[in-house]
């Protein structure tokens, strides 16, 4: 949940992480977000990506590598693919709205490192400009990043400079396109729309009271709207 501004919960341990990274990296920390008691996001500049990893590993003690991936923030032009393939696609917004820690670009690389002694993890994010989808590899920082970077390379088309061996991990060698990009259509859905989308299963609520449920649904609609 996003924290409401009037009651900012304080998470000193996680704030300390951000402070430490800021002192080490200076201006390279461009955004951060804390979910008190749960998680912390730190967004760094592309140039400081490897340095951020090294600082987290050596100076903060975050030696456990969890994963590295990427997010394509472009809203999917296909939605949930619930429409008939013969119809024209509905007008979809192309506005980029990024999540925790902010961001300016369509593609973000995200990685998580963990400290076993402090029992906390950091999400590190970095923006990648559309015209140059490349970033320095973390391979010298965490050995386990190898396959993760290969996966991101084939799925998003992001290049990792310094990775010696960016071949496809899952897809056949001659595969074209980057499947996890939002503008890559899920062909199975284009051929035949997913019938299950209308079939939302009723949840067995504890009261089992249809009216109460209906009221709740309306409330949620209002809250969401």
């Amino acid at each position: 949940m996003e924290e409401t501004p009037e009651a900012p919960a304080v998470d000193e341990a996680r704030q300390a992480i951000i402070d430490k990274l800021t002192t080490e990296l200076g201006d390279a920390v461009v955004g951060s977000h804390i979910q008190p008691g749960h998680d912390v996001w730190v967004r760094v500049t592309r140039e400081a990506w490897r340095t951020a990893g090294l600082v987290a590993r050596d100076q903060l003690g975050y030696r456990y590598f969890e994963y590295l991936s990427a997010i394509d923030w472009l809203p999917s032009p296909f939605g949930l693919s619930e429409n008939s393939p013969t119809d024209a696609l509905p007008e979809a917004s192309t506005e980029i709205v990024t999540g925790h820690g902010g961001g300016d670009t369509r593609f973000q690389v995200i990685a998580r490192v963990h400290s076993l002694s402090q029992k906390m993890g950091i999400h590190l994010k970095v923006d990648l400009p559309d015209d140059d989808l490349s970033i320095t590899s973390w391979l010298p920082v965490f050995a386990g990043v190898n396959w993760h970077e290969r996966e991101v390379h084939e799925m998003f088309g992001i290049t990792f400079a310094g990775h010696p061996y960016l071949r496809n991990l899952y897809l056949p060698g001659e595969f074209e396109g980057h499947p996890l990009r939002k503008d890559f259509p899920l062909l199975a859905r284009l051929v035949k729309p997913w019938p299950g989308i209308v079939d939302v299963e009723p949840m067995p609520a504890s009261g089992d009271d249809a009216e109460a449920e209906a009221a709740e649904a309306t409330e949620t609609e209002e809250a969401a709207g």
């Binding site: 925790h100 949840m203 649904a217």
Partner: peptide
């Protein structure tokens, strides 16, 4: 006790990011 919390019939998840392991 109950085995189900009060949840809306149609589940819409608010905006946000979460990591659970």
């Amino acid at each position: 006790g109950p085995i189900m919390a009060k949840v809306p019939r149609i589940i819409k998840v608010p905006e946000g990011e979460a990591w659970v392991a």
